[in-house]
């Protein structure tokens, strides 16, 4: 298999991942899209490693680490998504806009919100 094939495939995969990140509303789907991006990189790494016949196998090792990192990220990510779901009962990211730049609410409303908590 020629290197360029692998690289093209990886680029495609990465593009799909990016699209997924931008297009999907579900937080979990977003996580999956990110996984696609990382795996695109992995594909590249492994392909390059093979191409270079790297004696240190830097690419392969790197790919392994990326897998670990991805796992850790997903772990933390899912935990956060879970928290969000518990508090908001939704995992749709476009509804999460409580924190945004908007004009200050009147002080009284602040207090009301505070008391309500």
């Amino acid at each position: 298999m020629h290197l360029s094939l692998a690289v093209l495939l990886s680029a495609l995969l990465f593009g799909v991942g990016v699209y997924g990140v931008l297009a999907r509303r579900n937080a979990v789907a977003l996580l999956m899209a990110v996984e696609l991006m990382l795996n695109a990189a992995n594909l590249d790494l492994v392909a390059f490693d093979a191409w270079f016949k790297d004696t240190l196998h830097g690419g392969q090792v790197f790919a392994l680490f990326v897998v670990v990192v991805a796992a850790a990220e997903v772990g933390v990510g899912l935990a956060i998504v879970l928290t969000v779901f518990r508090l908001r009962e939704t995992v749709s990211v476009d509804t999460l806009t409580q924190l945004a730049d908007r004009d200050p609410r009147p002080q009284r409303e602040h207090d009301a919100a505070d008391v309500a908590q």
Binding site: A27, M37, L38, F48, G77, V93
Partner: peptide, 27 residues
Amino acid sequence: SEAALKFFLFSVVSTGLTVYGMALVYG
């Protein structure tokens, strides 16, 4: 939790870009 999620998503996407870049650098 909203803050955390935003932070997280932003971070992982950035990491994704970085890792891909690193792969290319390696290439």
